[in-house]
Design a protein around this nucleic acid. Structure first.
Length: 157
DNA sequence: GCCAACGTTGGC
DNA sequence: GCCAACGTTGGC
């Protein structure tokens, strides 16, 4: 899957924990605390610097895509996983043998409006997009280029 | 706040 | 290696 060409992603974040406005303020952040193997493998194996990200607000009212971010640094060990004072501590991870990784993400743009999940579900050309599938909980998802472009257009037109 | 869907853990 | 119990996610 990692072909060297640009890939596209969707990152979920709960806005009251870390919203796109937080990312805009910070400019760049560590995408910390991913503790799901599928999501980790995407970060570790397929994510490249410059990949573009649909920034998704989950557990929001309504949930949906609110902007664009970019991969600023490729996967490296998540040091919080061996920090026993962190919420993200995992006793099975160590400095010698890290189990989890994170990437750095930078702000690109905030949409003029949030594109609600319901609107994505309704869109005839987004039926195959992962995020609209029932029961899809993965917090980091690959996105097809054509889907990325459609959602980007919805957010900026 | 509910709860269905899903992932992980751990006893056997 | 099965699978029940448990914890988490996240839309509603």
């Amino acid at each position: 899957m990692s072909t060297g060409k640009q890939n596209y992603w969707l990152f979920k974040s709960e806005p009251y924990i870390y919203s796109i406005d937080d990312l805009k303020r910070d400019g760049k952040t560590h995408w910390e605390g991913v503790r799901n193997y599928q999501a980790r493998n995407f970060m570790r194996d397929d994510m490249r610097k410059g990949d573009l990200i649909l920034y998704y607000h989950s557990n929001a009212d309504p949930p949906g895509v609110i902007g664009i971010a970019r991969v600023a640094k490729e996967a490296y060990p998540d040091h919080l996983s061996w920090d026993n004072k962190s919420n993200y501590f995992d006793p099975k991870s160590s400095k010698e043998n890290p189990r989890w990784v994170m990437v750095d993400v930078e702000f690109v743009e905030k949409f003029d409006r949030l594109i609600p999940l319901a609107e994505l579900k309704r869109h005839p050309d987004l039926k195959e997009m992962m995020v609209v599938k029932p029961g899809m909980r993965l917090s980091i998802q690959p996105v097809e280029e054509k889907h990325f472009k459609i959602v980007h257009d919805l957010g900026t037109s």
